Every structure is written in structure tokens, then in C-alpha cells.
Computed example of a mutant assay.
Amino acid sequence: MPDHPVKSMEPQVSATPAALELIAEIRRDHPTILFHQSGGCCDGSSPMCYPTDDFIIGDNDVLLGEIGGAPFYISGLQYEAWKHTQLIIDVVPGRGGMFSLDNGREKRFLTRSTVCAA
């Protein structure tokens, strides 16, 4: 799996308490998971959560950090657009992405953001 170092002193990805609770719930069913934020047209601002063995990390994907014990990746193109942004993973009511492990739980992950300090 690619591992591009992050140069900021601030974590580039964090999770709210609600997101950490949902991650713990998902990990009871799927102990090893990962997140991927592609920024594609279908994903929008929803990070996708997958069993680790069900998703292949690409050579251009960037490891931003870890939330709830799960690695969090972002596509290289999305990273270039958001590299000065801190992503905050939250939970809102609704359905998760079709292939995301939050689907069917009546709550879904949502990415919020803030600009990182220089």
C-alpha cells in the first residue's frame, strides 16, 4: 500500500465522537476496515468504508492518517486539491454509499473540512 508522508503538524484527518462510534459498530462486524475518499461524482463528500481485503489501494492514493484504528486514504488528484485542508469525518442520518459498510445502518459518514494552519 502506498504511503505518502504528510508534512503538516496537524492531523489531516480526524473523526467526531459520532464517527468513532459508527466505526466501532462496523468493526464489530468487519474487524479490519479502511476508508477511501475519492472525490468521484458518485461519492461526493462521503468517504467510503470497505473491508481491507475488498479494496485495492492505488499507486496514486495518499494515506492521510488513521481514524478509529482504520487507515484513511484519499485519491492523489483529490489530495492535490485538498492538501491544505483537514478532513473531519462525521456522521449524519441517511444511507451510506452502495458499497460502503455504513450502508443499511440509517446513518452515513460525511466529510467536513477546515483549512489547515500554515
Score class of each variant (00 low, 15 high):
residue 106 E to G: 03
residue 13 V to Y: 01
residue 17 P to M: 00
residue 74 I to A: 10
residue 101 L to N: 10
residue 109 F to E: 05
residue 84 H to T: 11
residue 104 G to S: 05
residue 3 D to E: 09
residue 52 T to P: 00
residue 24 A to V: 12
residue 90 D to E: 03
residue 47 P to R: 06
residue 89 I to L: 12
residue 17 P to R: 07
residue 39 G to I: 01
residue 112 R to V: 08
residue 48 M to H: 13
residue 61 D to Y: 10
residue 10 E to Y: 05
residue 75 S to F: 02
residue 90 D to A: 13
residue 7 K to N: 08
residue 52 T to S: 11
residue 90 D to C: 04
residue 49 C to A: 15
residue 94 G to P: 06
residue 19 A to H: 00
residue 77 L to W: 08
residue 19 A to V: 00
residue 83 K to G: 00
residue 83 K to W: 04
residue 31 P to S: 07
residue 22 L to V: 03
residue 84 H to L: 05
residue 56 I to P: 01
residue 46 S to A: 10
residue 71 P to W: 08
residue 107 K to C: 10
residue 44 G to E: 07
residue 27 R to S: 13
residue 104 G to I: 07
residue 74 I to M: 15
residue 6 V to K: 07
residue 26 I to D: 04
residue 67 I to M: 07
residue 88 I to M: 03
residue 87 L to N: 03
residue 62 V to R: 00
residue 46 S to D: 09
residue 56 I to Q: 13
residue 112 R to A: 08
residue 108 R to I: 07
residue 50 Y to R: 11
residue 26 I to V: 12
residue 17 P to H: 02
residue 92 V to R: 12
residue 7 K to Q: 11
residue 51 P to T: 09
residue 98 M to T: 15
residue 29 D to M: 03
residue 56 I to N: 14
residue 106 E to L: 01
residue 80 E to K: 15
residue 18 A to F: 06
residue 78 Q to R: 15
residue 30 H to D: 10
residue 67 I to V: 15
residue 55 F to K: 15
residue 93 P to W: 04
residue 59 D to K: 14
residue 58 G to W: 09
residue 67 I to Y: 06
residue 93 P to V: 06
residue 29 D to F: 12
residue 23 I to N: 01
residue 10 E to D: 13
residue 116 C to A: 14
residue 1 M to T: 14
residue 25 E to V: 13
residue 23 I to P: 09
residue 95 R to H: 09
residue 50 Y to C: 13
residue 112 R to I: 01
residue 25 E to A: 14
residue 114 T to C: 10
residue 7 K to C: 07
residue 97 G to A: 12
residue 76 G to E: 05
residue 67 I to F: 05
residue 11 P to C: 05
residue 13 V to A: 00
residue 77 L to E: 12
residue 84 H to C: 08
residue 41 C to L: 15
residue 35 F to P: 10
residue 87 L to Y: 13
residue 110 L to C: 05
residue 63 L to E: 09
residue 57 I to F: 10
residue 24 A to W: 00
residue 97 G to N: 08
residue 44 G to R: 05
residue 20 L to C: 09
residue 8 S to H: 07
residue 39 G to F: 07
residue 38 S to W: 06
residue 20 L to V: 02
residue 87 L to M: 14
residue 48 M to R: 11
residue 110 L to A: 12
residue 30 H to E: 08
residue 13 V to K: 00
residue 13 V to M: 03
residue 2 P to T: 08
residue 43 D to K: 06
residue 101 L to P: 04
residue 31 P to A: 07
residue 31 P to Y: 03
residue 44 G to D: 09
residue 86 Q to S: 02
residue 32 T to D: 14
residue 54 D to T: 05
residue 3 D to Y: 10
residue 47 P to H: 11
residue 28 R to P: 01
residue 115 V to C: 12
residue 116 C to M: 14
residue 106 E to K: 09
residue 85 T to P: 03
residue 73 Y to F: 15
residue 73 Y to L: 02
residue 47 P to V: 02
residue 102 D to Y: 05
residue 73 Y to D: 04
residue 66 E to A: 12
residue 112 R to Q: 08
residue 81 A to F: 13
residue 70 A to K: 00
residue 55 F to P: 04
residue 98 M to K: 12
residue 51 P to L: 11
residue 5 P to S: 13
residue 89 I to P: 02
residue 14 S to Q: 12
residue 55 F to N: 03
residue 118 A to N: 03
